[in-house]
């Protein structure tokens, strides 16, 4: 996500580009963040390649079933004789690269389910958190009470209920990620905003008679960006974690596109025949989540050092 920034802002000013590069270069100050970034970029790259090329068609039953890794099928085949390597690569797409809109038209928008879900949680959470923190009083109490209730909900139960309430689909998963993520984002934004709100520049804006919305979104929000970015990174990791779990439980992203979680689930049933089948998708999920966590962790450490 940060890597996308410089290209987006090239047009405005050269100093912006430099600024963006400065922001990114602190990633490389930290070894942990660099390792994390490399893992994440690896999966992004694999996903992008899979849009154009995979060793075999991911959904075609071309081979013998439940093969261990061999020279034709680098990672073996699954219970229907499909090539695991191809399915693994394609599995990146729904998580990171594309979202299938509901309806028969088969419209696909860029940006994976995990990314849109976290984006939704950020928008809703930031809005609620800012209002709760800045307006305070009754606003704060009622918003926080509702969010507290949502937090008390075991997330998995909320997922289960939401997903069973609607038909399986990418958008439903995005909705579920938004609903379960928003309270956390709101709490974070609120705590950041409560601190920022005490700064004198907010008093200065108030004594200019600025509108509440201006103060919240123009004066407070930009100064909370750093921690929110780090948090968002962790949340993307957690969303991938969750998508995998839902897939594993058989209520995640709908077929036919391969999904890592359901790949693990299917391979598990044949674990005695081919123990190798569960490993690639399991490692994929774990490594991507770990990569995002490492990246976020390193970034946070560098940001605090930078601020000192």
């Amino acid at each position: 996500m940060t890597v996308a920034q410089p290209t987006a802002t090239v047009s405005s000013k050269p100093s912006r580009l430099k600024k963006a590069w400065e922001g990114i270069s602190i990633v490389f100050e930290s070894r942990v963040a660099t390792v994390g970034l490399i893992i994440v970029l690896f999966w992004f790259a694999l996903g992008i390649i899979s849009l154009f090329w995979t060793p075999y068609p991911p959904n075609a039953n071309l081979f013998e079933q439940n093969l261990p890794p061999n020279t034709t099928n680098w990672l073996g085949t699954d219970h229907l004789g499909r090539d695991i390597t191809s399915r693994l690569m394609t599995g990146t797409q729904v998580v990171l690269l594309k979202t299938r809109l509901p309806g028969d038209l088969g419209i696909v928008i860029p940006g994976g389910v995990a990314l849109w879900g976290v984006f939704g949680a950020l928008v809703v959470g930031a809005f609620l958190g800012l209002n709760a923190a800045y307006r305070g009083g009754w606003w704060d109490q009622s918003i926080m009470q509702v969010l507290d209730a949502l937090v008390a909900f075991p997330a998995i139960v909320l997922y289960l209920v939401i997903i069973t309430a609607f038909e399986q689909g990418d958008v439903v998963v995005i909705f579920a990620i938004t609903i379960t993520g928003a309270p956390g984002v709101a709490r974070l934004v609120r705590s950041l905003a409560l601190d920022i709100k005490t700064r004198d520049y907010i008093r200065a804006a108030e004594t200019r008679g600025e509108k509440v919305s201006y103060i919240m979104f123009k004066e407070i929000f930009p100064n909370a960006r750093g921690p929110i970015l780090v948090d968002a990174m962790l949340r993307v990791g957690y969303a991938i974690f969750m998508i995998g779990t839902l897939g594993f439980l058989g209520i995640g992203l709908p077929p036919p596109d391969p999904d890592w979680g359901s790949m693990v689930n299917e391979a598990r049933k044949f674990i005695f025949l081919n123990p190798w089948g569960v490993i690639p998708p399991a490692v994929a999920i774990a490594s991507l989540v770990v990569g995002l966590n490492l990246f976020a962790d390193g970034l946070r450490e560098e940001l605090t050092r930078y601020q000192k």
Partner: peptide
């Protein structure tokens, strides 16, 4: 710690089954 936390339960569970249940066979898979 980070790796353990970031690995979904079902992945951890599957690996434990693989290791202790299928390869080492110390517990029923």
């Amino acid at each position: 710690g980070l790796t353990l936390t970031a690995t979904p339960e079902f992945v951890t569970g599957i690996f434990l089954i693989l290791i202790f249940g299928i390869w080492l066979q110390v517990v029923p898979a």
